[in-house]
């Protein structure tokens, strides 16, 4: 057990200029590594989950699947899945990456499905009435209106992956989690603290970037509708709250 140390000692590792150069195991290198795992896992997960979520939402076939994968993903212990992959496949990037992708899929799938289903049916009918083909209905009517929820699913899954990548340092992955695991092993709390602060900062920065991206891609009309709906909720109870609950669900990891 590490005993508490005076406050100024916490920042030793973080403030040491030697740790900020570019070398193997330095802070910038670990940061880039961590970011790399996160982006790679989310991209792969999005490539899997977005098409399936869109298909299920558009056709409304297999809704059961989308909802249950979303719920099961939330209950699955991240560290357990990671351990299982390592015991099955050995340490290394691939088993860890598979675990990250498996954890990143459910939030994207569930919120993409929920987003498409939540689109106003009369708007879809109007799109069909205008003579749009099914793919046009999906990509020019449903997807733009579902974007806020789709984006929040992507943000949840990014945070989930960023957090689990930290834990994956325990099974030999690089990234910022190394500082936490190595610091604990060497009884150097200032290194642990530096790692923890950096991971937290990276996660917050990623979430803010996600919020910025969301503002950039969501059409102003859809955004306004969203806020109007929130205003209306003051008046009467609506069922909206239950659907809006879903995306925030699996954020923390």
């Amino acid at each position: 057990m590490i005993t508490p140390v005076p406050l100024f000692n916490y920042f030793g590792f973080l403030l040491d200029p030697a740790n900020w150069g570019w070398s193997d195991g330095s802070i910038p290198q670990r940061l880039v590594e961590h970011l790399g795992y996160t982006v790679l896992a989310v991209l792969i997960a999005a490539a899997i989950a977005l098409p399936i979520g869109l298909l299920i939402g558009h056709t409304n076939r297999g809704a059961f699947l989308a909802i249950n994968i979303g719920n099961a993903g939330r209950a699955l212990p991240t560290f357990g899945l990671l351990s299982l992959m390592v015991v099955l496949m050995g340490t290394g990037l691939v088993p860890a990456l598979i675990a990250l992708v498996v954890l990143a899929v459910p939030p994207i799938l569930a919120s993409t499905y929920a987003g498409i289903r939540a689109v106003d049916r009369s708007a879809v009918d109007a799109a069909v009435g205008m003579g749009m083909r099914p793919t046009e209905v999906l990509f020019r009517a449903e997807v733009p209106m579902a974007l806020p929820l789709i984006m929040s699913g992507l943000r949840s899954s990014t945070l989930q992956v960023c957090a689990t990548a930290t834990v994956a340092a325990y099974v030999g992955l690089g990234g910022l989690g190394r500082f936490l695991i190595d610091g604990l092993a060497r009884n150097q709390y200032d290194q642990v603290f530096a790692g923890a602060v950096l991971v937290a900062a990276l996660a917050i920065a990623l979430d803010l970037a996600g919020a910025g991206l969301e503002r950039a891609v969501v059409s102003p009309g859809v955004r306004q509708r969203g806020s109007a709906r929130r205003g209306r909720r003051r008046g009467a109870r609506s069922t909206d709250t239950s659907t809006q609950e879903a995306p925030t669900a699996s954020t923390a990891g």
């Binding site: 590490i2 960023c162 957090a163 834990v167 936490l180 790692g195 991971v199 917050i204 979430d207």
Partner: peptide
């Protein structure tokens, strides 16, 4: 607060 990864928060707590 919710976006802070769990392992990081567990280990910031001692400070």
């Amino acid at each position: 607060l919710y976006s802070i990864p769990s392992l990081a928060l567990f280990l910031i707590m001692p400070a």
